[in-house]
Structure formats: structure tokens, C-alpha cells
Amino acid sequence: MFHDLNVPWTSAKELQRAVVFLDELGYDVVALTHSYGGRLPADLTSPVPNPLPFPTPSRLRILRRCNIFLTDAASNFRIPQLQQQYDLIAARPTDEKTLQQACQSLDVDIISLDLSQKFEKHFKFPMLGTAISRGVKIELCYGQAILSTDSTAKRNVISNATQLIRVTRGRGLIMSSEAKSVLGLRAPSDVMNLASVWGLGLERGKDALTKEPRSVVEFARLKRQSYKGIVDIVYGGEKPPVQEKVVDGKAKKGQSKDQKRKAQDSLDTTPAQSGEEKTVSKRQMKKNKKTKLDAEV
């Protein structure tokens, strides 16, 4: 199962083509992204209509995701409200401080950095390591490297991607397209090769398309649906009333057995007492006999 968790939502007509093309390339799960820049609007409902206005391939599973641009660390991102509207929530930090906030405290699913710009500081493992250990994945978007005609942007994407791969030691990474048009989409095997050229290795590259994004999707789903994010009932089973009676009868039987056992237990304990009584009585009898004999003698 291959995932592409970042396909920007542009317009219905263009996106229909993108979705069909993704299916043709062999992807199974696709997330349509809507980005929030600056202050969040009052109405947080997703602009991606549900269901989509065009027929989608039945094999493909489509998710909804939102990107929040973290420009100011102090502002409130209203993540619980966003969680109700979207399947996935990604944070896009713009500077060092917000990146730290996203790694350490923010309740998001994915950290997605804009790789086409240059960062002033190196990424550090302790910061990204906390994010990975919390289950927040870090996203590498290859779309800009392929589509942009600007060679510095391309260089920045490649250098930032290799830096991230080095710092995270290949763990907790997701590869996704973030392609503004259909042309930026590539087949999973091509992306895996790209990852291996960038120093991630083929196996890890495959994980970045299959295992890691799947864990993000499932973890996000559990967060929303399950009890306290821990217990989820997949299929509770049905209980016809007739069977319930039988179960009740069994329970009763069990109870009676228990009672019997208790009775047995009590019997088990009593013999010792009764035995003592018996011995006492025997002694008594002997004594009686002795006294009788003595009396006779």
C-alpha cells in the first residue's frame, strides 16, 4: 500500500486528473491538503467537498488534511476543532522557535517543512527525535524539486532533504509529493529510487511510502475515534437474545458449581475439626475404658 499524503487541493477539474493519475501510478491512499496561512478563520470546515464532486477510482482511499503555517508561537491553533474536520493535521513551521514548538508540544500528526527555502540553523537530533518518539512524522516533499525551474530552490530541497535524512537517521520520515500540478507526481518506485539517491536507502525509502504514513493515518484515526486513543472496537460482535439466556444458564451453572466447591471446601476444612473431635472422643473413650477397667480391677 503506497501513500501520498500531500496533494494540494486546487480545483475540482484539475484534481480529478491528479487523482486518476495517482491511481494509475499505483498509490492506494491519497490525502488532499488545504493550507491555512496566518490567522485561522472562524469557520474551520474543510473547503474540500465531501463527497468529492467527481467520480474517484474505487481502489483509492481519499483523506482530508490541513496544513497550518506556524508563524507565531503564541497564537492558538485550535487543533481539537481542526481534528474534527480533517483526517490529518500537519504543521508547517517557519522558524526555529515554531519548529521546536511543533516538535515538543503541538498535537499534530505531521511536521512538514518548506524545503525550498534555506534554514539559518542546522536541524538537531534531540529536537526532531522528540517529535519522532511522540509519533509525529517528518515529511519530505519532492514535488518542488521536480517542478521548480529555479535551480536554487532545487538545490535547497536536495540539501535540506539530505540534512533531514542525516539528522533523523532515516527514521520517521514520509515522502510525499506536494505537487501543484499533475506533472509533479511520480510513481512509488521512482520516489524510492530518489530517496536512495538522497541517501535514505531503498528499504527505508519504501518504509517512507508504506509503513510510516500508514502508521500516521491509523494513529490519527485512532485519536479521533477510539476511547482515549487507546481502545478501539473493530467489531464488537452481536449477541442474539437466545444465546444470552444460554450464557446466563451457564453462568448460573458456574455459580452453582462454585457454591458446591465452596461447600466442598467447607467440608474439606471441617473434617480436621471433626477428626479432632473424634480423637478427643476416642481418647475420651479410652479414658473411659481405662477408668472402667480400673474400676473393674
Binding site: D190, V191, N193, L194, S196, V197
Partner: peptide, 11 residues
């Protein structure tokens, strides 16, 4: 891999 990557980057 280099040839493959070059093909991937062709638009």
C-alpha cells in the same frame, strides 16, 4: 540510480 533519478526529474 543516477540515470533513473535523471529520468525522474524530467518533466
Amino acid at each position: 540510480e543516477m540515470v533513473w533519478a535523471a529520468l525522474t526529474f524530467t518533466t
